[in-house]
Design a protein around this nucleic acid. Structure first.
Lengths: 346, 346
DNA sequence: CTGTTAGCGCGTTCAC
DNA sequence: GTGAACGCGCTAACAG
């Protein structure tokens, strides 16, 4: 019967005693920083096994310079957080583990910079990955001042001096417009995010929309933009409005996952079959979300796994002392045709 | 211009020097374990402010007994993880913060017990919260052996000696059956999770289904169970089959979010209007998910916030030395009527 | 190849 | 009311 009292974990001293060597030799056997004879190494290793020795993370971090822990600032409150975000987390976690680090997820809000200050000055983590990056992100100056290495997943307004990975939103619009243009569409609806978000400079919204307008202009396509809240109801209303325009809109693009659900609902209630009579496509939604609706949606988005993985690599590079090279990456858009777009009707 | 070199964080010694007191006095001013004169306390506090002093977490944990960090074992790979899970995380995070702890999310897989062993023996965290609990969860014995306080969000096969919070799945089925029974339904379809999950004793699946069958028996309702993979395609097939049964099924209950999407698709293609000609309801899906489909779904589920919050309270109680009281909680089901059920058609 | 020693920053016991 | 001193477990010079 297992005792329920906290068993004192074996320390380096215990291992040294059992193996009949000095404490530092145990350390060196562990880190391999110094040559150890085959024989003593084996004695030490069996001693460690026998005692179930695990180095104390705190002591290790206190004495050495690194804790082996990376934090992922992952504000969960925000706008609900979607599945795509989660791909970053998984990918980052895997990559970090492969590099011998532990990943801590810090769910604090973006605004909670007091906590952040404490956190980064506590000496708990070696580096930080940021998600939900804002145009003017208050966390960035805190990190810089603390001398804490970090990598953004996203971008600030002016990220020229920062380390980041992000989707190349500027390409999304042109890609979509060209696709629909090739299919003969001339009047295209756009269901975007709420005006407030655009006004505060929410990067993905602004950058995507800019590219959309530019390419539409070039292609001679009329864009009908609707900025609505991320709700089904708002999406319904937007779609109803779009259907009243003349000349008639024959396709719609969305950057608003929830609103699109409402839009599809309206299209169905008007007996407009997709893609024969109407084309739809969405930006930046996960494969799961794209297949969740009826019908499945053709999408343009980003490969989340790549981003998480690359963010980790960049951060590790900084930790390894690379302070000069420019580490910035924009991930190319991924087009996934799920059959929700077709030739423009007559 | 901010230097990019790592500024050495102020230590207790720095504060002591600036305030003109001894180091231990600084500590006592911080912990309040010992009476400090108003005057020196102020000198110390202003010194801390001036230096931006933050106690080093590592040193604190090394010297003291506690790190002030709780870990949430949160396997992300699993079955994709859904929004409901995320409510736990948010709630747990808030609660933990209020109690003065930091929450670490550990995304390691359930099977990865080697990492877990290291983690819990590293002395990094004071206690652990577990999600995605299995019937025979390999993490539990590891935690017990390590003497690490923990609280399950979920249950094992025999949780009698453990600390846990969970949804009371046994009530879900009866609640649903009674609701549909009151509406006059006699033939009810059930779209459950894959057989493999049931066979390995996946708690929510097993417990929910047991209650479902029992109450159906009592109420004289015939249940038509389909255990299918969590895919839209599988849901379509299941629904098509259900529609061929005689006497005809007039309602369907789902514990399979993805499959339900396919099922709704089939109902729409058969021009069966909901709730007039057919009733549907789902177990355990988030409000967002329930409103994402067309039509929105009536659901029976759990209040995720309560669970996360309570799990934290239980764990803190254990940390504070409460080792005798039984800390176990089953959360009552929440019924949310979104209009997708109606009287059974003639 | 291996042992000795000095910190890392802070909790805490023991003195005044 | 305040200081001094030791130790937590480990890394990293410094000595052989």
């Amino acid at each position: 019967m297992p005792s329920s009292k906290k068993p004192k974990q074996a320390t380096r001293a215990d291992v040294a005693r059992l193996a009949g060597v000095s404490e530092s030799t145990v350390s060196y056997a562990l880190t391999g920083v110094r040559p150890i004879s085959e024989e003593t190494r084996e004695r030490i290793e069996s001693a460690m096994k026998e005692l179930g020795y695990v180095p104390n993370a705190m002591a290790q971090a206190l004495a050495g310079k690194r804790s082996g822990i990376l934090a992922l600032l992952f504000p969960v409150g925000e706008r609900g957080f979607n599945e795509t975000d989660f791909e970053y987390v998984q990918a980052a976690n895997e990559a970090v583990a492969e590099d011998g680090y532990q990943l801590l997820l810090w769910p604090n809000a973006v605004e909670d910079i007091e906590s952040l200050k404490k956190i980064v000055n506590q000496g708990l983590v070696d580096g930080v990955l940021l998600m939900e990056v804002r145009s003017e992100d208050p966390r960035v100056p805190v990190l810089i001042e603390a001398g804490m290495p970090f990598c953004l997943i996203g971008r600030t307004e002016d990220p020229s001096k920062l380390t980041y990975v992000d989707a190349d939103f500027s390409q999304w619009g042109p890609l979509a417009i060209r696709h629909l243009g090739d299919l003969g569409h001339k009047q295209v609806g756009y269901i975007g995010i709420a005006d407030e978000l655009i006004n505060v400079g929410y990067g993905p919204g602004v950058r995507t929309e800019t590219g959309l307008h530019e390419e539409a202009g070039r292609a001679g396509i009329t864009l009908h933009p609707k900025h609505v809240a991320a709700t089904i109801r708002a999406g319904r209303a937007a779609m109803e409005e779009l259907l009243t325009s003349t000349p008639p809109v024959t396709a719609v693009i969305s950057l608003n996952e929830s609103a699109m659900v409402g839009a599809l609902e309206v299209l169905a209630s008007h007996d407009l079959s997709i893609p024969e009579q109407f084309s739809v496509m969405s930006f930046g939604i996960s494969e799961i979300a794209a297949n969740m609706t009826v019908p499945s949606q053709t999408t343009i988005g980003v490969e989340g796994k790549d981003l998480g993985r690359m963010a980790d690599q960049y951060l590790i590079a900084r930790l390894n002392g690379d302070n000069k090279s420019v580490l910035q990456h924009l991930s190319a858009p991924v087009f996934a045709d799920r059959g929700s777009t077709g030739p423009a009707p007559e």
